[in-house]
């Protein structure tokens, strides 16, 4: 079903195995290539190793939490442009605002249905493609 995407890679950083497998399987069924990490350290390592189109990031993680991973990604030049969607069971408005102000592309609260997950990922990647196309046209003067 890789009809609308050239196989883009999405990284899921989530310590809950069942939730990680669900998100991973839905995105695979939608034609994405998915990498999984159960903690922030492994997630950052994978993000540095291969180009990622998007990262789905949980907040409560063993070791460095989602905040630390988001901050690290936004300060590291090679990773800062990757859109990060927070995917968390923490429903607080202040946390949502904090994540968005730190540069997260969206903030999804669990539980979430398969269609919404797919919809948000598609939308963020579409926006990114659109922004990249505008930048490209500015560069080439077209």
């Amino acid at each position: 079903m890789a009809r609308r995407h050239e196989t883009k890679t999405i990284l899921i950083i989530e310590d809950e195995a069942d939730v990680r497998h669900f998100a991973s399987r839905v995105l695979q069924l939608e034609g994405y290539c998915v990498l999984q990490a159960e903690d922030g350290d492994k997630g950052l390592r994978l993000a540095r190793e291969s180009p990622m189109a998007l990262v789905l990031l949980d907040l409560r993680l063993p070791g460095d939490d989602g905040w630390a991973v988001l901050q690290q990604m936004k300060t590291e030049p090679a990773l800062s442009a990757i859109p990060v969607i927070m995917f968390t069971a923490s429903a607080g408005v202040s946390q949502r605002n904090k994540a968005l102000s730190m540069g997260a592309a969206d903030y999804l609260v669990k539980p979430l249905n398969a269609a919404s997950l797919k919809g948000v990922v598609d939308r963020i990647l579409y926006q990114r493609r659109y922004q990249d196309a505008i930048k490209e046209s500015v560069h080439t003067g077209g």
Binding site: E16, V19, F22, K110
Partner: peptide
């Protein structure tokens, strides 16, 4: 967290 697995 378990609700996420059930809904998902």
């Amino acid at each position: 967290t378990p609700l996420a697995a059930i809904k998902g």
